[in-house]
């Protein structure tokens, strides 16, 4: 199982469910491949100076970040954030076996 540290990200809005996941490894193509498998859309802008990716899962969860970084930002849908968070974290823990 992969280990990660999860921290709530505060922004201007009271009700948002945004979390940062600090991974034990750098985000690379293997991570993007995994993200493509679990998402319905996954875009990676490799034309940017530091490539940026953004994926949307079937339940509305969004995963965003930078290739080469060690953290991703995850935005859970407002209406069902707890369930979605549990599901994503379970997935994430099996990302690198």
């Amino acid at each position: 199982m992969s280990h990660f540290e999860c921290k709530k990200v505060e922004n201007c809005f009271v009700s948002t469910a945004v979390f940062q996941y600090r991974l034990g490894y750098k985000i690379d193509d293997e991570f993007i491949n995994w993200l493509e498998k679990i998402s319905i859309t996954c875009k990676c802008r490799r034309d940017f100076p530091r490539p940026y990716f953004n994926a949307t899962l079937a339940d509305g969860t969004q995963v965003k970040g930078i290739l080469g970084d060690i953290a991703v930002k995850v935005v859970y849908p407002d209406n069902d954030s707890t369930m979605c968070k549990e599901a994503f974290e379970k997935n994430l823990s099996y990302c690198r076996q």
């Binding site: 201007c12 530091r50 953004n54 930078i66 930002k73």
Partner: peptide, 24 residues
Amino acid sequence: VEDVGEILFKSFDIVCRTGLHCAP
């Protein structure tokens, strides 16, 4: 808007600000 700010910062090293700017 938050995504745009993040991309500008993390991909392009441009520091701006997004959100309500403490003036709701």
